[in-house]
Design a protein around this nucleic acid. Sequence first.
DNA 1: CTGAAAGCGCTAACAA
DNA 2: TTGTTAGCGCTTTCAG
Lengths: 358, 358
Amino acid sequence: MPRIPLPSSSASDDGGERSARPQMADIARLAGVSVSTVSLALRGSPSIGEQTRQRIAELARSLNYRVNVRARNLRTGTNRTIAVVVPYSRSDRHHLADPFYLGLIGSIADALVNDGYQMLLARAEEHDEDLAALYETGQAAGIVLTGASRPHEVCNQLTMAGVPLVVWGAPMPRQLYCTVGSDNRDGARAATLHLLDQGARQVAFVGDNELPEGAERYAGYQSALQERGLKVEPGLHCMQVPQGSKDLSWLSSLLEHAERPDAIFASCDLIAMRVAQGLQQLGLRVPTDVAVCGFDDIQMAASFEPGLTTVRQRTADVGAAVVAALTAQIAGRPAQSLQLATELIVRASSKRKRSRAR
Amino acid sequence: MPRIPLPSSSASDDGGERSARPQMADIARLAGVSVSTVSLALRGSPSIGEQTRQRIAELARSLNYRVNVRARNLRTGTNRTIAVVVPYSRSDRHHLADPFYLGLIGSIADALVNDGYQMLLARAEEHDEDLAALYETGQAAGIVLTGASRPHEVCNQLTMAGVPLVVWGAPMPRQLYCTVGSDNRDGARAATLHLLDQGARQVAFVGDNELPEGAERYAGYQSALQERGLKVEPGLHCMQVPQGSKDLSWLSSLLEHAERPDAIFASCDLIAMRVAQGLQQLGLRVPTDVAVCGFDDIQMAASFEPGLTTVRQRTADVGAAVVAALTAQIAGRPAQSLQLATELIVRASSKRKRSRAR
DNA sequence: CTGAAAGCGCTAACAA
DNA sequence: TTGTTAGCGCTTTCAG
């Protein structure tokens, strides 16, 4: 004996579902066929008669019917949603303010769409342990983690738990998870060699070398110096650039080094621009007195004055690589970590006159 | 007579659903209770006995069980996903490269999460007519449209079709939809008045005044001039700033105006920075020879040299406003369009010496 | 206090 | 060719 177990559909306070959209049942009733016939017809099944198909198609169009993707996905066990996690920390908004990351996210979004996936944008506090929930509740078929810092242990656990995961950035010693990133070390090495080739004798490094990517860039910088028989001097490394504007003590103390640096390699373009501006404020010319080089090649680097020499990350390729690694894992195949090649873009900020160079 | 209508679960090529996660049925079996008891127990229903609840809770924890949100949502008719649409055009990547938009999207993401919503990031080609699909297929309970240009007609149609929609930006004449944006006109007016107060006589405007927001900013600029009894000279308006770096003809032709402009108001910070850099390249000092003011107050504006005077958009409040407007519509209430107040941030790029000003 | 049953909106075997 | 039936994983009446 049938009961009436309708959900308490009292007011319109139903948590988000709005005005009754048409459903297959409606089409079926109006067309005088069964729901399954409608389903088959709309998907273009060959087993449905032409005139029936036409009638149903027209009815659907006139009612502006669209199949409910969530119901379909539940039934078919399909999940084409990927969660892209962006770090969120109130203290250090650096990563979010950096245009580089917008390009990165855009690139991932494009690649996902190309593969028929949707992108769920999630924000996570640092060391958020509940990233797995995105996967375990069935909301996402996989997770992409972006940002400069990274909860190493959490990532390992996620992968061990079988969560398809790709993290943006540099590979780390004991990682079980898959990373996709630029070859920071090689890029930084090329940049530093370039500065030396322009005649620089004292190349300083500005940027955090404790974050995974920063560490790699610092390593590349070190190795370039060593290749040329130069020592790495701790006094030529500036860790942090304060967010506030006025204070230039970080820069002046760098310049007060025994032998004043004649080139500065910054770990990202945003920092490089601050370096260049700071130098000019202190009355030094770029590149004549001090050459400057950045990393990322954000759009602004080209229009900056002077044009910023930098290491380009091939953002456009990142999305494809990330999605490839992700779909491999979703299909049960292992995914290899990847380092994308970088490209040195030489602009005015590092060019010395031929006469002086060498 | 029961058949075996199992989906063709042949290989693991099931379109995204991975390794069998535990389900309520599993817990129920292990606990020796029915599925409905598990459901009630996990949601903390008072009608379930304490020891039963405990047993179930522990079992769930040990199996690392999490309810399938998609199934739950289908059953309860809940949809807590909002699609945020970001424009995508290969030709003009300006809006995506602009850090301002990353802040905007982040702000919306935060506000959505605070209200228990998820954010689906979607990209749309210009004049994409199929935005409605996001709503009509049940994927999203509402849509937020960001970006500087805007398909006016499409938005009107969406709203008429009952799609909860909020678009970022300036209100337009015959809009049926809801917009949330800054008071561009007032902000631009304040900025222009400030430049005039600093002693400027010829204020130029750089930026596209055909986009909705640009038009408002241009209107504010105009009205400030008129308030001071000055004429708006078309020769003092530069529409486009080329993406490529070298070419400064747009700037020099502006400066070749009969009376050379002594202040430039740019329609966004990114453009303002290019203006300032261009001026310096042409041998002019900022602000001594030409004062410069931008719009947005992106983070970089403060550390720019010279510090960029600009009109701050209260990004942090935008998210809350957008979500409020959206939830109102989802609940069936009408949502009013909103213009958020802006704030003039005066920095070095517009400051004249007292002696010369006035 | 617990379980049986109905059903969210759709798909897909199988029967007719 | 079309309809019947079972069920995706969960929630929620209502009967016991």
